[in-house]
Design a binder for these strands. Sequence first.
DNA 1: AATGAATGAGTATTCATTCAT
DNA 2: TATGAATGAATACTCATTCAT
Lengths: 206, 206, 206, 206
Amino acid sequence: MEKSARKEREFKTRRADILEQAEKIFAVKGFYSATMAEIANASGFSIGSLYQYFESKDNLYSKMISEKLDLMHEQVREKVKVASGIAEKMEMIVAAHFQFVENNEDFCRLFLRGENAAPSEVMTSLRQKIMDGYSQHLTFVENELKEGIKRGILRPFPSRDMAAVLLGLIRSAAVDWMLFPKKASLLSRKDFILSVFLRGVQQNET
Amino acid sequence: MEKSARKEREFKTRRADILEQAEKIFAVKGFYSATMAEIANASGFSIGSLYQYFESKDNLYSKMISEKLDLMHEQVREKVKVASGIAEKMEMIVAAHFQFVENNEDFCRLFLRGENAAPSEVMTSLRQKIMDGYSQHLTFVENELKEGIKRGILRPFPSRDMAAVLLGLIRSAAVDWMLFPKKASLLSRKDFILSVFLRGVQQNET
Amino acid sequence: MEKSARKEREFKTRRADILEQAEKIFAVKGFYSATMAEIANASGFSIGSLYQYFESKDNLYSKMISEKLDLMHEQVREKVKVASGIAEKMEMIVAAHFQFVENNEDFCRLFLRGENAAPSEVMTSLRQKIMDGYSQHLTFVENELKEGIKRGILRPFPSRDMAAVLLGLIRSAAVDWMLFPKKASLLSRKDFILSVFLRGVQQNET
Amino acid sequence: MEKSARKEREFKTRRADILEQAEKIFAVKGFYSATMAEIANASGFSIGSLYQYFESKDNLYSKMISEKLDLMHEQVREKVKVASGIAEKMEMIVAAHFQFVENNEDFCRLFLRGENAAPSEVMTSLRQKIMDGYSQHLTFVENELKEGIKRGILRPFPSRDMAAVLLGLIRSAAVDWMLFPKKASLLSRKDFILSVFLRGVQQNET
DNA sequence: AATGAATGAGTATTCATTCAT
DNA sequence: TATGAATGAATACTCATTCAT
């Protein structure tokens, strides 16, 4: 039926609209201080309608977080995929992350604030989902680095630890950029981070 | 007066007791889900008494966070102070942080969760305090690194960025350790982090 | 729209129901001892619903007082308006007040108790509103008396003072009636009050 | 024992001090918003000490009100006692009340506010006490007026009603004076009130 | 399907009173 | 006797969720 297809499409669009507004509000107020009424209002729906798209406030928040996080991982992977060569792939890992942060600053600020909180079932499962997603992402990065080790470009450190270090460096640059606002774009710090990661900060002994 | 001195001492002890219990409860439940009644109960005081030591729930949380953070910064600085030589100082920066995280895991988990949230006055001032403390700490680390640059031990990168990188590496190792529990102590990762920071991950070109 | 009109009507009815029950409870217990739960219960609404009709307990109390007071003033004025001649108008002023007191004893007892209290914003504004209402009412009575002075029926006392005296006499009769319950209606004291007001208590010298 | 006599004296002095401060605070904040801590502080005693002089907050308030009211009644009676002749006695009734109000404005404002509230035992008994005191006072005034009726100076109205009217006029003048602050003293309105009471507001027919 | 009024459980905070010191 | 820290009952208000229309 054509009808159901259009309905389906509309459903998704509206769902996305809600998610978009919710993200903004959660970013400003945090999970607890944001209210369903507020989100309903901002997205132009009634409170009741919100519950047609999401089971609960927890669920709305969870979906918002996890879907966006998935998007980030996906974006990173896609950009890395089209890159050729270890060096370019590593550059893309950093660049893609930075681009996502710049394009989704509100969302990322939510993580400065944290608040992946609450002891509820749903929230616990969110935390698990976040960790799983992170774990997979780590594995993805790890595999790229392994290639570098194999080719003798990278030192034979444990690849998982190296991946954690790379993501840690990316994260710390992003946090620093959000915490202490600067004129320069986050992306402009890409080379610095890459350089530190690749060559270390130690003066060449010669 | 002896009397007032003892009272003073008792006051501080009890205040610390409350803070200690509150930390545990906040760590498990988060700021919003933890209740004053729970904290009162856990610390063996009545609800009313809590308010003799702290103005409000916000205030209790703020004090708990900021005092512990101050303690961390202080502990790091003291350990670095007694170290001699750039290398040893940098080692101490990493070691002292790791030790603190191991000794205060509950507290640190609070930061995984984040939740330095709430749009209230008190919480806003807490966030400012956290940022100020971090900023000062960054400056402290930066000054140590500057010495290293001056002596030609470290590459002439912007010292502040290098400091941010070092703290970022420390943080990412700590987060990784808390997120994916391992048998090995966090401290055992010190040399790896230091090595990465100092020599980088790039294979020596030969 | 028919719908919104009915909604509107229902809203007003329910609001009035709450006000009516609240009046009784406040009359018995006073502002502070009355609880929102009690009022909710008595009016057959949930606690939450009370807050859909009134912003706060203070607000509920304020509206109840000021709307009823407005009603009293209005009723007095309407009855006076249809009266013809100074004598009849003055009679109506007394009669209308007494009728209101008899019909709204609970409400009036609230004023024996006073309790237009509380240092809150809302309550301060209530007190101002009460005074303003009283002031206007005084002016209304004053204008009627001025007519009597102009026609040489009343002694040329300051009209405002005379108005205050008349309302004072009305009030004292009402208070006496409420304080020391008697079989006779308050209205039956109308002629006495009027007589005292007009001719005083002094024996005619002859 | 001398000692106990001094103790007794001290006790009364301190009790009076508390009552004095309490009156001020109650006048400003009302019964419910005033706190025992505040009263303790203002009167220079500890909270615990307050309870050595008064059983409870209700009791403190009750005693403050009833003792001051007794004082008012007493002062009026004494001044009336030394007056000679009906006219002078009636003048004194008005003058003595007005003087008390001027000398105890804070206290009297408490009655504008009312708040002889609370459904507690103690408060109920206070209300009874106030009514009894008022009733006795009314009887006292009534007896003076009876004398006037007997001597043919006053119209043969029911004496109790006349007394209520006189006290009502006094009250309304006092309330008006407190509600709408004026430069003139309250006492300066004595003759007006007396004149209205005696001769009414009606123009003499001549 | 959409609405938004109604619900009521849940919680921070206050403050009269007590009692150990 | 005096103190004031400790107590905990009491209560206004919020907001996620439901469901009648």
